[in-house]
Design a protein around this nucleic acid. Structure first.
Length: 255
DNA sequence: TCTGGGGTCCTAGGACCC
DNA sequence: TCTGGGGTCCTAGGACCC
C-alpha cells in the first residue's frame, strides 16, 4: 500500500500490484483487480484463485499457444496443470512443455533482475504508403541510411558497439523477413553499419512493394572494450594464426 | 482488435573446430 | 585418411512481451 501511495504521489497515477511468491504469479495477480488493485496471493490459494483462470493469463502463453491448447481441450490453467506431459511435449517441444507445466503449477525460480544490458538495438519504420524498391529507390535509400544513422546514434549514446548488423523487411502482403551479417570487429560507425546493412539488402528479393524497413544491431559489447582500427588489425592476424572458427569463415568468404 | 516500434528468447540447420 | 562425437558460431524465423 505504501508503494501504491508512492507511485500516486510521484505520478498522480494509480497502479495495480500483485504480491506473490514469484514473478510469474505476481504478474498474474497484478492483473486480477485492475484498476488500482492490490492482490496478495498465498501459495495455498493457487488451486482456488489461479487454476480457474484461462491459460492466456500466463505471461509467455500467447495467441498461438492458446489456440493450440484450446484445440487439445485445454482452456484453464487447471487443465494445463493436469495435462499429460507427453501430449504437451509432442505439440510444443520438450522445453516449452516443461515450462508450461511448471508455470501452471505456480513454479517459477527466476530471480528478480532490475537492470540488464540490452541484447539488441534497432530502428524501424512503416511507410505511409508501400514503396517499391525500384520506383521509389531514392526515397528508400534515404530512409535506409537515416535508420542506420539513428541506430549508430543510439549505440553511441548508450555506450555500445555492435558486431552483428541486420535488416528487417515487411512486404505489402505482411510477410516479414530478416537478414544479418556479423562483422570481424565491433562498431558504432554509421558508415560501417550502412555498408553491412546494404550487404544484407543484396540477399533479399526486391520485387514486391515494401511496407516496413528496419535496421537492427546485436552481439553488443559495452564501450569498455572497443577495438581501434589499429588493434583490430593485429587481433585479426592473431586470430588467423590461432585459427578460430569465425576467422576462418571470414577467410573462406574472401574477407 | 489491430497496428507500430521496440525488445527477448528459442529452435534449427549449416559450417567449422578439436 | 576417414569417421564420429561434442561443441561453438552464424543465420533465419517464429512466438511472445510491453
Amino acid at each position: 500500500m505504501r508503494l501504491k501511495q508512492a507511485v500516486r504521489q510521484a505520478t498522480g497515477l494509480s497502479c495495480s500490484i500483485g504480491v506473490a511468491p514469484n514473478k510469474l504469479l505476481s504478474k498474474i495477480c497484478s492483473g486480477l483487480e485492475k484498476p488500482d488493485g492490490l492482490t496478495v496471493l498465498d501459495p495455498v490459494e493457487i488451486p482456488s484463485r489461479i487454476w480457474p483462470l484461462p491459460v492466456r493469463k500466463i505471461n509467455g502463453i500467447g495467441p498461438k499457444a492458446t489456440d493450440t491448447l484450446a484445440a487439445m481441450g485445454i482452456i484453464t490453467i487447471a487443465g494445463l496443470a493436469r495435462a499429460e506431459p507427453i501430449l504437451l511435449k509432442t505439440h510444443f517441444g520438450l522445453s516449452y512443455a516443461e515450462w508450461m507445466l511448471r508455470a501452471a503449477n505456480g513454479v517459477d525460480e527466476r530471480p528478480v533482475i532490475t537492470r540488464a544490458d540490452p541484447k539488441s538495438i534497432s530502428r524501424e519504420t512503416t511507410f505511409e504508403r508501400d514503396l517499391h524498391p525500384r520506383h521509389d529507390r531514392a526515397v528508400l535509400s534515404g530512409v535506409f541510411t537515416a535508420l542506420c544513422s539513428r541506430v549508430a546514434q543510439d549505440l553511441m549514446r548508450k555506450g555500445y558497439y555492435c558486431r552483428t548488423v541486420g535488416i528487417k523487411l515487411r512486404y505489402d502482403d505482411f510477410r516479414t523477413l530478416t537478414r544479418d551479417r556479423t562483422l570481424p570487429v565491433p562498431t558504432a560507425d554509421p558508415a560501417v553499419i550502412r555498408r553491412a546493412a546494404g550487404e544484407c539488402l543484396r540477399h533479399v528479393p526486391l520485387e514486391r512493394k515494401l511496407r516496413l524497413l528496419g535496421v537492427r544491431t546485436s552481439t553488443l559489447t559495452s564501450s569498455a572494450a572497443p577495438d581501434t582500427a589499429d588493434q583490430s588489425g593485429q587481433r585479426e592476424l592473431a586470430l588467423g594464426t590461432t585459427g578460430t572458427g569465425a576467422n576462418r569463415r571470414e577467410a573462406a568468404r574472401g574477407n
